[in-house]
C-alpha cells in the first residue's frame, strides 16, 4: 500500500475523513514556509505542497497572491524540492506536489521524477494536465510518483471513467465549476457528483476547491473519503500580524477540521 492510500486507511480507522492541506512553498518566505509545512505535516493526513507558478489558471486570488509573493522572493522548483526533503527528513506524512505542467516540462520530466523521488515526494497533482496530454508524464512517473487526476462537475461520463481508471492515490473531485478559493456555499449537487465518482471506482475520492469552514467539512465527511483545504489555510497566515500567530491559527483550524471531519 502506498503512503497516500495508507493515510486514507488510517483516517478511516479513526472514523473520520482524510484531511488534506494545501500550502505553498515560499510563502510568506522560504524559511517560514518550511517551518509551516513541517508543522502542517504533523497534524494533516496528507500535505499538498504547492509550487508557485507565474500563471496559475486554476487558482483564485488567495493562491495567486501567495504565489506571486513567493516568486518575487525567488522560489523555484529546485528550492521546492529542497523543502520537500527537509519536511521528509522529519516525518512520514504523504507529500504531494501541486503545480502546473510547465514547471515539470522545463525542469525535465525525468530529472524531476528522479529528484522528487529522492527528496521523498509521493505524488503530484497537475491541474493543467488532463488525461489526453498525460502519456509522456505517466510513462516517466510510473512506479516513482503517484499522479492524481482531477474530476470536474463538467466532466462527462466517459471522461470520469477514464480519470478514475488512471488516477493514482485518489481521485481529486473538484467541488465547484470554478477556480480555487473559499466559498460560503457549496453546490447543491456536490453529494451526487461524489456519489457518481464512487459508483465508478473503488479508489478513494477527495473533494477540494472552495472548502473553507469546519461546518462544510462536517457536511462532507460522510460523503467523501478525503477533504482538501487550501485558500482558507493561507488566509490564516495572510490575516495574521506575525508568522507565529498565522501558524498558530492555521494549525488550530486544521485540528478543528480533523475533529469536524468525524464520520457521524
Amino acid at each position: 500500500m502506498s503512503r497516500i492510500e495508507a493515510a486514507f486507511t488510517k483516517a478511516n480507522q479513526e472514523n473520520r475523513a482524510c484531511i488534506i492541506i494545501y500550502y505553498p512553498v515560499g510563502y510568506p518566505d522560504y524559511e517560514n514556509s518550511v517551518v509551516a509545512l513541517k508543522a502542517i505535516a504533523k497534524v494533516a493526513d496528507i500535505v499538498e505542497v504547492g509550487i508557485p507558478f507565474s500563471d496559475p489558471l486554476a487558482d483564485g486570488p488567495t493562491i495567486q497572491q501567495a504565489s506571486q509573493q513567493a516568486l518575487s522572493l525567488g522560489i523555484n522548483t529546485q528550492k521546492a524540492l529542497e523543502a520537500v526533503k527537509e519536511i521528509r527528513d522529519e516525518c512520514k506524512t504523504p507529500l504531494v506536489a501541486m503545480t502546473y505542467y510547465n514547471l515539470f516540462y522545463r525542469y525535465g520530466l525525468e530529472k524531476f521524477v528522479s529528484d522528487a523521488n529522492k527528496a521523498g515526494l509521493d505524488g503530484v497533482i497537475i491541474p493543467d494536465l488532463p488525461p489526453e496530454e498525460a502519456d509522456s508524464w505517466l510513462n516517466i512517473a510510473k512506479n516513482k510518483l503517484e499522479t492524481v487526476f482531477l474530476a470536474a462537475p463538467t466532466s462527462v461520463d466517459n471522461r470520469l471513467k477514464q480519470i478514475c481508471r488512471i488516477s493514482q492515490g485518489f481521485i481529486y473531485a473538484v467541488s465547484v465549476t470554478g477556480v480555487t478559493g473559499e466559498r460560503t456555499n457549496l453546490p447543491a449537487n456536490l453529494a451526487d457528483f461524489i456519489k457518481k465518482i464512487k459508483s465508478i471506482t473503488d479508489k478513494k475520492v477527495a473533494v477540494g476547491f472552495g472548502i473553507s469552514t469546519p461546518d462544510q467539512v462536517s457536511e462532507l465527511a460522510n460523503i467523501s473519503h478525503g477533504i482538501i483545504i487550501g485558500s482558507a489555510i493561507i488566509k490564516q497566515m495572510k490575516n495574521a500580524v506575525s508568522f507565529d500567530e498565522g501558524l498558530n491559527n492555521l494549525i488550530k483550524l486544521i485540528l478543528r477540521f480533523k475533529k469536524k471531519g468525524s464520520h457521524s
Binding site: 489558471l57 493543467d128 488532463p130 489526453e132 487526476f149 466532466s155 473538484v174
Partner: peptide, 20 residues
C-alpha cells in the same frame, strides 16, 4: 485529432474546461 502540430499545441487546461 488531439490538436497537436507534432509536439506543439494540445489541450493543457483544467479538467473543468475539457467538455467545453
Amino acid at each position: 485529432n488531439k490538436g497537436h502540430f507534432e509536439e506543439f499545441g494540445g489541450k493543457f487546461v483544467p479538467e473543468t474546461l475539457m467538455a467545453a
